[in-house]
């Protein structure tokens, strides 16, 4: 099982698949928040899917990056047609990904507060903006991943 999970194409698939779940969870949560008051049960499902998705994507992508990327992919990109894909896109992506989870957890804490707390807090707009930002960051990171994969293919 471990051997299958650490197989390179499987790792990339898990990294991407979990990230898509994370993005979907936060887009769903944003939709629930916009349709105020939103369905609390669905908001909990959306939040768990979102946070679990980003956490698991981080683990799968991190393992791939640390074990395989530096030795197998990075040299191909750096000697290929688009070395900037590593120097700019990958360098930025790998670090932006690190701070997604704390931001996502904070957004969920604000989104899942009960109605009394949310009314007292009066931060409906700020919460929606933060939830949307997490989803947007996930999408931007996905686009960056596409550029990196494409650069690796061009460099082959």
């Amino acid at each position: 099982m471990i051997e299958l999970l650490t197989y390179k194409p499987v790792l990339i698939g898990l990294h991407l698949g979990f990230a898509v779940l994370g993005i979907d969870g936060f887009v769903w949560l944003m939709g629930e928040l916009l349709s105020s008051p939103g369905n609390k049960v669905r908001m909990k499902y959306a939040s768990w899917i979102g946070i679990s998705g980003f956490a698991l994507s981080w683990l799968a992508g991190g393992y791939y990056y640390v074990v395989y990327y530096g030795t197998l992919v990075k040299p191909v990109i750096k000697s290929g047609l688009a070395p900037w894909a590593h120097a700019i896109v990958m360098e930025a992506k790998e670090h932006i990904f690190i701070f997604i989870l704390p931001v996502a957890i904070t957004a969920v804490l604000a989104a899942l507060a009960n109605d009394d707390i949310r009314a007292k807090l009066g931060a409906g707009k700020e919460t929606i903006k933060l939830v949307g930002l997490v989803a947007a960051l996930g999408l931007i990171i996905g686009a960056m991943g596409f550029i990196i994969s494409a650069a690796a293919r061009w460099g082959a």
Binding site: P102, V103, T106
Partner: peptide, 13 residues
């Protein structure tokens, strides 16, 4: 305290 938790989490993030 949920409001304090949101505040602490936001600054920690």
């Amino acid at each position: 305290n949920r409001i304090k938790l949101i505040y602490a989490s936001a600054w920690a993030a």
